[in-house]
């Protein structure tokens, strides 16, 4: 009887120990694994996006509407459709940028230094809007805590730019939804430690099996009373894009 009881207790202890160790693995993925999952959802192998940008400063408002085709980190084609910029188009191939001027109906290669400038006066750079880079390829991430954002449980993760990698920001702090692996909040810092921009996601949607941010507010901390809203009206993933999509012919 005692022998049976001892075996039963040992068996129970083993089950508890195994289940605990299993729980430990599932409950605490590494920062790299979390960010790889974020990349998995946010990286665009290929996509067509119809979006809108609203830039406000006090009573003044600027609205930009555009349709973009994106293929990974290297290729992007964006056409503006709002009245002020209607017909302006940009083509990005790796680190090269071309612009189509609708009035002259001709194409000009834009100097490389413009890639990091705000696209058509917004807080988003050409790189931000015309490529889909995997963050895990550029930053070394570490989990620094857990917090709730708008009622959602999030990992708080810090990323430091890896040496030799080209990234717009030296440090970034991410609030990643524990279940949906979307970024609810982002803080982007300069090397000096100064907070440059804060991005908040206000709406996400589950599309084709992945959660994707559809409405974001970016607050440029260097600008007073200014804010940019980026809203995706429609997005299609993993499209079969024609071979000449990212060509000067399509830019015309």
């Amino acid at each position: 009887m005692n022998n049976i009881l001892v075996r039963l207790i040992l068996g129970l202890m083993l089950v508890v120990a195994l289940s605990l160790s299993g729980t430990e693995i599932i409950a605490a993925p590494s920062a790299a694994e979390i960010m790889e999952q974020v990349d998995e959802y946010q990286h665009l192998q290929s996509a067509k996006i119809e979006s809108k940008m609203i830039i406000t400063k006090g009573p003044r408002k600027m609205v930009k509407e555009m349709t973009s085709y994106i293929k990974g980190a290297d290729y992007g084609l964006t056409k503006f459709t709002n009245p002020r910029d209607r017909g302006s188009k940009f083509l990005k191939r790796e680190n090269n940028l071309w612009m189509f001027f609708p009035d002259a109906e001709d194409i000009v290669k834009i100097s490389g230094h413009m890639l990091e400038q705000g696209m058509m006066g917004s807080d988003f750079s050409y790189q931000d809007l015309m490529e889909s880079t995997k963050l895990a390829d550029l930053y070394q991430f570490t989990i620094i805590g857990e917090e709730k954002v708008d009622g959602r449980s999030c990992y708080v993760i810090e990323g430091i730019k890896e040496e030799g990698k080209e990234a717009s920001y030296y440090r970034r702090k991410e609030w990643v939804d524990k279940e949906r692996f979307v970024l609810w909040r982002e803080e982007l810092y300069a090397r000096s430690g100064r907070l440059l921009k804060e991005l908040q996601t206000k709406k996400v949607e589950q599309l084709e099996g992945r959660w994707y941010p559809m409405y974001q507010i970016i607050d440029n901390k260097l600008k007073k009373n200014s804010q940019t809203v980026y809203e995706i009206k429609k997005i299609e993933f993993d499209l079969e894009l024609p071979a000449n999509t990212f060509s000067l012919q399509r830019l015309r």
Partner: peptide, 26 residues
């Protein structure tokens, strides 16, 4: 149709139509 052979300069001495335009001006 507009025929412009731009290359990003302020002055374009080799455009199809001389004096056609600077990039931003009509």
């Amino acid at each position: 149709q507009p025929i412009s052979w731009l290359f990003g300069s302020l002055l374009n001495p080799v455009d199809f139509n001389l004096g056609a335009e600077t990039i931003e001006q009509e």
